[in-house]
């Protein structure tokens, strides 16, 4: 039986992690079908049909799908589920919100946040904030799996010509009403997929001081991250939080500034290829995962860092 991938999108475009979830799906079975539920989502459906991994696209449209409410999406997927062995999507807030609602209806025990596919029924997933890896085998006939997108490469996004079939909408769930979404728009790369991430913690002392970080980030073409403490203190908005209860990032370079390195923060960044820590406390746990540690006051180090970057002839983008 084929695998059903749930596409994440904004009606116009696919969200980037759909490509990572597609890769994971293709490691389970060659026959990957993708469902896209939305309103006026033809442009995103077309992009989905161009992923060479995807053999068929099922497009389902209705006004009540415009805002991606789990209560509306779940019944659609449940109807499709009989034809599939697995249902897959990313373990980001979209998938975390939606998949358990599907799994419970199918009487399936969901496997969350998979970082490796061993076989169609066996997976590795982190537990305890990534302090242990569990290999788990699901014995449910139908498998509901969310994958950690940063653990899978994005798939090829062009060249495919999968047919797009229209699917049937389900009734609207009237007890949940979408009110609004406040997306923080920025020209910087997305935190989840950026090549470089520069993150600030409580050591930044104020939101205004984050300017020191934005300067460096802009110079490096980097995304901006933060610890929970920095978000809680209101220095920066919640979508920047890295960690066990925020986002997981795996950039080529992660620069942690004024962040102590609590395990809940490490859970979100310790797989980064190169880690830099700037902290005035030489004993800070962040240094135990840093490839390059600089024990210094960030208010001196960051302006110097800018200066040194300005001296470079070229900077990789």
């Amino acid at each position: 039986m084929a695998v059903l991938l749930i596409a994440e999108h904004n009606n116009k475009e696919l969200r980037p992690f759909t490509l990572n979830a597609a890769t994971a799906a293709s490691q389970i079975d060659d026959e990957v079908h993708a469902v896209i539920i939305g309103q006026n989502s033809e442009p995103a459906a077309k992009k989905l049909s161009e992923l060479p991994i995807v053999k068929k696209v099922i497009s389902i449209e209705a006004p009540h799908y415009e805002n991606f409410t789990a209560e509306n999406f779940a019944p659609v997927i449940i109807k499709l589920a009989e034809n599939y062995s697995h249902i897959i999507c990313s373990a980001n807030t979209f998938g975390k919100n939606l998949m358990p609602r599907i799994a419970a209806h199918l009487d399936t025990s969901q496997v969350s946040d998979v970082i490796k596919v061993i076989s169609p029924d066996t997976f590795i997933r982190p537990i305890y904030a990534g302090n242990a890896f569990a290999t788990v085998k699901t014995n449910d006939e139908k498998k509901c799996v969310t994958i950690r997108p940063t653990s899978f490469e994005p798939c090829e996004s062009s060249g495919g010509t999968a047919p797009i079939e229209k699917g049937e909408a389900a009734e609207e769930f009237s007890n949940t009403k979408f009110i609004k979404r406040e997306e923080i728009k920025s020209d910087r790369p997305e935190l989840g997929t950026a090549r470089i991430v520069v993150s600030g913690g409580r050591g930044m002392q104020s939101g205004d001081n984050f300017k020191l970080i934005t300067d460096v980030a802009d110079k490096l073409g980097a995304a901006i991250g933060a610890s929970r403490a920095a978000v809680d203190a209101g220095y920066i908005s919640n979508d920047h939080q890295v960690g066990q209860t925020g986002k997981v990032v795996v950039p080529d370079l992660y620069i942690a500034i004024g962040i102590s390195g609590a395990i809940q923060h490490l859970a979100g960044m310790k797989e980064s290829k190169v880690i830099v820590a700037i902290n005035k406390d030489g004993e800070a746990p962040i240094f135990s995962v840093a490839d390059y540690g600089l024990e210094a006051d960030l208010f001196e180090a960051l302006p110097q860092f800018m200066e040194e970057l300005n001296k470079l002839n070229t900077i990789q983008k």
Binding site: T108, S109, V111, T122, P126, I127, G130, N131, A132, F133, A134, T135, V136, K137, T138, N139, D140, L253, K270, V274, I275, V276, G282, F287, S288, V289, A290, D291, Y292, G293, L294, E295, A296, A301, Q304, F305, E307, E308, L309, L312
Partner: peptide, 29 residues
Amino acid sequence: RIEQLKVEEPPKRKAGIKVANVAELVQKL
């Protein structure tokens, strides 16, 4: 419904170094 076959420690990062100053840091990067 889910069997836990094995729980293991995640791979450890190899120890890094401390740099003396910002110039050295940028040069290393």
